[in-house]
Design a protein around this nucleic acid. Structure first.
Lengths: 344, 344
DNA sequence: ATGAAAGCGCTAACAT
DNA sequence: ATGTTAGCGCTTTCAT
């Protein structure tokens, strides 16, 4: 029999106690039989496992984490899953965390609200770590996580608070590489479409890009903003392409916006990317490679970034206080959405 | 002071006991102060909340679920997040569950493996429900979930086991609608690209589509298979388009495959969709509307499907045994990737 | 309205 | 190697 009624009427599963009775051992023996590396005679263990099998027993993980103080759960806050960069990152995280023996508690980050309420809620599961994709963490909030003793790792973002770990791509180098690429391509009126103004990612990419032109004494690029999202990026592209001094090249601070820009340029303005206008992005999401877009971009190695994040979480087990800042290098991926420099 | 050392050296957070001492009440009073609708004098409650604030106390949700037997956590198994249909569903689920007061425990479904191991693990968190996107659930596994007393809801799939709740779109009607649309469009050699052979979704869409032609005494469509994934769909499209009797219309059993097919047709074979070849999909994912694809498709109302799923979970609170099968109707969305029937 | 006391299912000393 | 005992932090009777 698998289920029995408790006094209070709620239903109860088979407990270690039941198994102990069935196997004729103590309840702690049952616990040990399910603890890797505990000292149980192999005969006893077999007997216990058989009884457990018969009764359909499985240890209650909630009770286990209550005692151990560790939940084996990692929280992960995600903003916009329509951005394929985050969809891919989440996909990779789910597999990597699974392999590393962690469960994954997902919660949505509402970009408009303060993030405060969501995190508040989630902090009290004794998370082993909290990964934040696409979110900015204020110092106040970071302090709150520290107080709850939940280590935070920002993914693809940095915090104002230096005491928060982070894993980011090399935005400065990437943006400067793209700037040099567009400049060498002989573009005259260059524009930049920024992401979310407050994010370190956008700030770094914008700054890297603009600094290149400044240092070389070149005209300052036209600045627009697409908030890292599809619709605002579409609108921003329209504004750019209807200017009297229409730019001949646009650097979008992520691929998600670049693809929106590509669509507007080609289908609303009849401009063929790579010939009539150059558009480049940042990330190298899977669809950037599709022939329909063939986007020139700076690739962020998401898989490597995810692995680095997991490494950090593993290290946290022994050194909970440790702060790590990891910068992962990327590479320029030249496709056909932007005019390339002539060779020679 | 927020943190104190326990005897065993592990770190501990402020407990209800600490707050009780600080406020000069019993520990149970603290519990009540944090239980909505419990009988506490408002003065006492204020005193307790103030003490909690001072100490930085928040109830430990793990301990709470241990006692209540309910975790307020819903498990959600997802396969391929690169398929925008699932990315969108997950995005909607994360917000809807948040609003409904549930946490979301995400785990990856490896389509190649048996699903068994992943679910086994996750079942023991006393989940309030388990939502399975894009997975087939064998009867054996369904029985296991029942044993663990975790109600399962299949999303966009049905189970062989009638005792498992499900929320699906009307695949038969949708597929027949598309069949009629292609037929009325005057297509002569029609092909169908199936999804995962074992899935109810693919079976229903294939059956609905084929049954239309059979019932009308029309030639049987050419059959190919793209496994609901990008790369297999790309390969399947190549096989179709290199046939001697190249089809003039392809129904892909989801948009994810249809978009792959669109890319192959246009960029590898130079065929303009809607003119040289007709391609239709199923789902109406956001990017299907992009001018680069402009995919004619049968829309599944994901938001409605998600809401229905949440409704079912809510009902489960009172009637844990209840099984619900929900079928949500969709609509034909005509764009330009397929030749439309001439009017009149 | 409040406190005391008994668990929820498990782990981790401590004995034996 | 195994059993006994004492909690983990909370909710929930049961008294008062």
């Amino acid at each position: 029999m698998v289920v029995r009624k408790k006094n209070n009427g709620t239903r109860s599963l088979v407990t270690a106690h039941d198994v102990a009775r069935e196997a004729g051992v103590s309840q702690s023996a049952v616990s040990r039989a399910f603890t890797p590396g505990a000292s149980v005679a192999s005969g006893t263990r077999a007997k216990i496992l058989a009884a457990a099998e018969r009764l359909g027993y499985q240890p209650n993980l909630i009770a286990r984490s209550l005692i151990s103080g560790r939940s084996n759960i990692v929280g992960i806050g995600v903003g916009n899953l329509r951005n394929p960069f985050f969809a891919e990152a989440l996909e990779l995280f789910s597999h990597a965390l699974e392999r590393a023996g962690y469960r994954l508690l997902l919660f949505p980050i509402d970009l408009s609200t303060t993030l405060n309420a969501e995190i508040q809620e989630v902090l009290h599961y004794r998370l082993d770590a909290l990964i934040l994709l696409s979110a900015t963490l204020t110092s106040a909030l970071a302090a709150q996580c520290r107080r709850a003793q939940v280590p935070v790792i920002l993914f693809n973002r940095r915090s104002d608070d230096p005491e928060v770990s982070s894993v980011v791509g090399n935005n400065i180098v990437g943006a400067r590489t793209l700037a040099a690429f567009l400049h060498a391509g002989g573009h005259a009126r260059i524009a930049i479409m920024g992401g979310i103004a407050g994010s370190s990612t956008s700030r770094e990419r914008e700054h890297g890009f603009l600094s290149y032109f400044e240092e070389h004494g070149l005209p300052k690029p036209i600045e627009e903003r697409g908030d890292f999202q599809h619709d605002p990026a579409t609108a921003a592209t329209r504004r750019l392409l209807t200017r009297a001094d229409r730019p001949d090249a646009i650097f979008c601070c992520n691929d998600h916006m670049a693809i929106a820009a590509l669509n507007v340029a080609r289908f609303e303005f009849g401009l063929e990317p790579g010939r009539d206008i150059s558009i480049v992005g940042f990330d190298d999401v899977p669809i950037a490679a599709w022939p329909a877009f063939s986007l020139t971009t700076f690739a962020q190695p998401v898989a490597t970034m995810v692995d680095r994040t997991i490494d950090i979480i593993r290290e946290l087990r022994d050194e909970p206080e440790r702060i790590t800042h990891s910068v992962v290098e990327g590479t320029l991926v030249v496709r056909s959405s932007a005019r390339s420099p002539r060779i020679g």
